[in-house]
Simulated assay, not measured.
Amino acid sequence: MLTKKADKFSQLRNDILIRQGLKKAAGTVSMDMELGAINDSFPDGCFPLSAVHEFCCVSAEDKTVTTGFIARLLSSLMKRGGITLWLSPARMLFPPAFTTFGIEPDKIIFINLSREKDLCWMMEEALKCEGLAAVVSEIRNLDFTASRRLQLAVEQSKVTGLVIRQTTWLNTTASVSRWKITNLPSQTPEGLPGMGFPRWNVELLKIRNGRPGSWQLEWNQNGFREIPKEQLPAHELQREAS
């Protein structure tokens, strides 16, 4: 009896997610994005594919950190095959650096468009192309109407859209999630001189049908790992406690 009730609740939850636009792309049910504890915040415990995700940053430094986190997501999305389209006003990326995350630079097509209007139009059209693994676009201003058009496009094509917004003004959008990625001081092994692995403070500010949260992560050659509390800077511990 309990098993039947659990199955009914599970089916009801899946139906609700589908009606709200969180549809799983065919063949991606078991895809592991290797995000560890972050997965617990997602609906159905899985990073929403066929959706538009918004990444907000204020400074150029935060934008650089955000780009690294997105590259990690792309490395999983592109395992299914296909290429990524990266749209921006002016390319500031160093393509060979993507190999750090297991991405071949020639699998990413960069297109530079100076006008915001053109960026939004190009992203919408690109998201309709089923052969793409993902579309990344650097757009400062994204209103609700434009974001809704992007979300409708991915629900048809099953492509995942990632929007990077360097702005201090956050308005309401139709994006499934909103993230904020900032830098944390690295730590070398056993106090050795030099630079350690990149460390990020990852904040999930909004997630449809999920639970927002924050995590402190380190990226190394084996993927993400959560940073132990005793290794966090004092100001981060204070922020976590507040």
Rank of each mutant, 00 (worst) to 15 (best):
K5T: 13
A6T: 12
K8W: 09
F9T: 14
Q11G: 04
R13A: 15
R13I: 13
N14R: 11
D15M: 09
I16D: 04
I16Q: 09
G21R: 01
K23N: 05
G27H: 10
V29W: 04
S30V: 05
M33R: 00
S41N: 13
F42G: 02
P43H: 08
P43L: 06
D44H: 08
D44A: 14
F47E: 03
L49G: 13
S50L: 00
S50Y: 01
C56Y: 09
C56S: 08
V58G: 03
T66N: 01
T66S: 14
F69S: 08
R72V: 03
L73E: 04
L73K: 08
L74V: 02
L74H: 07
S76H: 13
S76R: 15
S76V: 07
L77E: 06
M78G: 06
G82P: 05
I83L: 02
M92I: 00
M92F: 10
M92Y: 06
F94G: 03
G102F: 03
P105W: 02
P105K: 02
K107Q: 01
F110L: 05
I111R: 00
K117Y: 03
C120N: 07
W121L: 09
W121A: 07
M123K: 11
E125C: 04
L127W: 00
C129P: 05
G131H: 02
I139D: 02
N141I: 10
L142R: 07
D143P: 13
F144Q: 09
F144E: 12
S147K: 00
R149N: 04
V154H: 00
S157E: 04
S157D: 00
S157F: 06
V159P: 03
T160F: 00
G161N: 03
L162H: 02
Q166P: 05
T168A: 15
W169M: 12
T172Q: 11
A174T: 01
S175G: 09
W179T: 06
W179N: 07
K180I: 11
T182F: 01
L184I: 15
P185V: 15
P189D: 11
P189H: 08
E190I: 01
L192K: 11
P193A: 08
G196A: 02
P198T: 04
V202Q: 14
L204Q: 01
G210M: 04
R211A: 09
P212A: 07
W215Y: 14
E218T: 11
W219Y: 15
Q221N: 14
N222H: 14
G223D: 12
I227R: 09
I227P: 11
Q231V: 12
P233T: 12
P233N: 09
E236T: 14
E236I: 12
L237C: 07
L237D: 07
Q238Y: 05
Q238D: 12
S242D: 07
